[in-house]
């Protein structure tokens, strides 16, 4: 597969959705409230649907999901972080869904390969963002324990948020404007949740790059091993 700007962009956006969907799927049977089992699965299914459309733009969805090596995945490091507690999941949802809504809003407004997908997905991710905000408020402004857990989660994931605004070749949006709007929106929600906006650096100090360059964190390899194992054990089989 030759990676053109267009397929590269489809992979970046598609891998984000695929990997986050997988991580959310890990909650099945473990959610803190039964109603939340249904809510998290809805979000995971929306993301998986987006991933399938995007990966299909770049090639065969299953080949891309199951047969690429770790270094060929282009997703953000944020989405591959292992579960953690419910606060980590909500903090990640807040960071990512806010980004996705802003990005897809811009993509939906322009002509181009991603406009159709973005127009549909923007409605889904607006709901994901709402879900994340509702829970951020409740965890941040709930009990002392939940506040502390949410504070820790927001800080722990903060260092993965800078990567989101690294321009993706083939995606023509106002990245700087996106970043400003994101900071504003997330800061507002955190403040309403009585949480402070983390102050640490928003990206790692590794000059080689991060997820968009195919450089991932250690847990990602194990995630892929689990996800790809069965498919790879039966080369060429149909399912």
């Amino acid at each position: 597969m030759t990676v053109t700007a267009h397929t590269g962009a489809a992979l970046a956006l598609g891998d984000d959705a695929l990997v986050l969907s997988h991580r959310l799927g890990e909650w099945a049977g473990h959610a803190p409230v039964l109603e939340e089992e249904v809510a998290l699965a809805n979000i995971a299914l929306d993301l998986l649907g987006q991933a399938r459309v995007l990966l299909s733009m770049a090639g065969d969805e299953d080949e891309l999901a199951y047969l690429r090596e770790e270094r060929a995945f282009r997703n953000l490091q944020l989405v591959e972080q292992p579960g953690g507690d419910f606060a980590h999941t909500i903090a990640r949802q807040l960071y990512f869904s806010t980004y996705q809504r802003l990005l897809y809003t811009q993509l939906a407004a322009q002509e181009g390969a991603f406009a159709g997908l973005a127009a549909k997905a923007v409605k889904e991710v607006a709901y994901h963002q709402d879900h994340a905000e509702q829970w951020t408020l409740r965890l941040g402004d709930g009990t002392a324990q939940s506040h502390e857990r949410m504070r820790r989660a927001c800080e722990a994931l903060w260092r993965f948020t800078g990567e989101m605004f690294q321009p993706i070749e083939g995606v023509e949006v106002d990245w700087a404007g996106l970043q400003t709007a994101w900071l504003e929106s997330v800061s507002d929600t955190l403040r309403r949740a009585t949480l402070e906006v983390p102050e640490g650096p928003r990206s790692g100090a590794w000059a080689a790059g991060a997820g968009r360059q195919g450089l991932h964190t250690e847990p990602f390899g194990r995630m892929l091993a689990e996800m790809q194992h069965l498919h790879r054990s039966h080369p060429g089989a149909s399912w």
Partner: peptide, 30 residues
């Protein structure tokens, strides 16, 4: 009953099967 099937969500061998299985386990919660 969600548990034995959820056991395979992370290993579903195609994206189509993964979506179906997630939706099914979700239905069980519902």
């Amino acid at each position: 009953g969600m548990q034995p099937e959820a056991n395979w969500i992370s290993r579903a061998p195609s994206l189509r099967r993964k979506a179906i299985l997630m939706a099914k386990v979700q239905d069980e919660a519902g």
